[in-house]
Design a protein around this nucleic acid. Structure first.
Lengths: 299, 299
DNA sequence: CCCGATTATAGGACATGCCTATAATTCGAT
DNA sequence: ATCGAATTATAGGCATGTCCTATAATCGGG
């Protein structure tokens, strides 16, 4: 094992290390599986290259010079570091170590995706995972420009450079002010009941596919009046509570954001749904990323 | 410079390091003063040996894989350590670094030799000097068995394995009890005056040559009665003060040991003298030791 | 669709590393 | 003092590795 590694780069240093241990060319050469003259040659070559005598030769016996003692220490150290370097590189090649820049989705609940990331961290403890959160639009841009490796997004995402792998789906509820007439009943709302209601949505560029899909699913007969575009969910629900309009909110997120002035209502069948997706660069070859996606796919 | 070192051991790693910097085979090969195909070959060989793809090739352009990024870091680290290793070894070869085990002489004053050691430490700050103190006999034994590299001793030392280099000479005084009749006068003592006086000496095996030389010089007419052999100078002078006998003491040491119950007297011409010597293994080739001796010789 | 820039491949010259056989050196014993 | 055992050094031959030049293959842009 050690031999194999040393052959690649530090052969002479490895030879010297063994020789310094054995203090005997013949035995050292045996251990190295080379002939004794070859070892003699290589040691002399090492001394020539360093410009320093490492051995004090007195006929058929020798001992290490002061420089030789130093060389022994340094050789052992170098060889150890060499092996570590190789194992780190191969680890990186297998996605066992490295860095992973990840972004959660603002429109998803905090715990969504956390399980997956937790499982990954457990399985690949030597990968440093950095996490942030952003809207789908920003996350996809981050992927494209390389600041992100993986991002939770709301599909559909129409970018050939970016692939989205479904993580899960959930129903989309409608947030109403508590005083709203439609809030009286707990029954599912029909689409004709909400047509024409003023709506508060997020800025479309924050998640275009998701935005359009919500419009289709809630208002198939025609787009509603969008009275406000509010990027921050907290602010958005405050606006709903104030009676400015209604707002679609994914189920998990709704559970997180429950507040006194708001009620959430289901829509009648077909219930609107949205997926959560994990996005990555289609052509990404980074094994760290591929391992994450593989973990998602295989469970 | 760097190139030269890397050629010896980590050629391919050096190549890769430069390539990773340039991200261009042609330019990197130019910088390395090799042809571009050779660089291609060596990088492929490195990848083959590591069993990991370091470059992601897409026709005439490429970029580093995750493993490649790791390899770049590791290569730079290895190359830096490699250079450090080489410079440490060559430093050791020139006696600029390493260890020096030194022993002062018990029979010399504390400040004798300290100047020389101080000058050495200043000139060779990277050499770790360890110092202790012992009798000539023990010091010479330490030299022979390798636990010491250099020792201050009292010549003559009759050992072909050990060479002694004179550091200085001093007169030997005679310590007398204050009440002793010979202590009355401050004049130099004649040898016939001290013949037959009871004498306190150190155990002969602690410094045989010195011991014999003292006997010859003080009592040329015949050995005196040695009433006690006391290895410790403090104890010895206490015994002198108690009137047990007289004792020869080198001048510098006498100055250190002045005490109320004792007077020191010079001997009449020819005044007895003793040298202080610096002893080292005759065949020692350790440049650290040779540099010390050279410093003594050249001043 | 071709052109420029870039990397990959092929084949030959030379150097390096390893091998076997043998010489040279030293230490210890007769 | 000399011989023998143990050990390292040297010599010559072969295989491999490394480098070179010349040329092919590949991709991006005008």
């Amino acid at each position: 094992m050690r031999r194999l590694l040393a052959e690649t780069g530090l052969r002479r240093w490895f030879y010297f290390s063994v020789l310094a241990e054995e203090l005997n060319f013949t035995r050292a050469a045996d251990r190295l599986h080379i002939a004794q003259p070859s070892l003699s040659q290589q040691i002399r070559a090492l001394e020539r290259d360093l410009g320093v005598a490492l051995l004090e030769r007195s006929g058929p016996r020798f001992r290490l010079t002061a420089a030789g003692e130093a060389a022994r220490t340094e050789a052992d150290d170098l060889l150890e570091r060499y092996e570590r370097a190789v194992s780190r590189i191969t680890a990186a090649g297998q996605g066992l170590s490295g860095e992973l820049h990840l972004a959660y989705s603002h429109s998803a609940a905090a715990d969504q995706g956390a399980g997956l990331v937790g499982a990954y961290r457990e399985r690949y403890p030597d990968v440093r995972v950095s996490a942030e959160a952003g809207w789908t639009g920003r996350n996809v841009a981050g992927l494209r420009q390389g600041t992100l490796d993986l991002a939770f997004v709301r599909p559909p995402v129409d970018e050939p450079e970016v692939t989205v792998c479904p993580v899960g789906a959930e129903e989309i509820l409608l947030a109403l002010p508590r005083e709203h007439p439609l809030a009286r009943t707990r029954r599912r709302l029909r689409r004709d009941q909400i047509a024409g209601e003023p709506v508060i949505l997020w800025p479309r560029e924050h998640a275009e596919g998701y935005y359009d899909s919500v419009i289709w699913q809630f208002w198939p007969s025609g787009p509603p009046p969008v009275v406000r575009e509010e990027p921050d969910d907290q602010q958005l629900l405050r606006a709903v509570a104030a009676g400015e309009g209604v707002a679609p909110v994914p189920e998990h997120r709704a559970r997180e954001l429950r507040s006194p002035g708001i009620v959430f209502r289901h829509l009648a069948s077909p219930q609107p749904t949205v997926q959560l997706g994990l996005a990555y660069r289609t052509r990404d070859t980074n094994p760290v990323v591929l391992n994450f996606v593989a973990l998602l796919r295989t469970g």
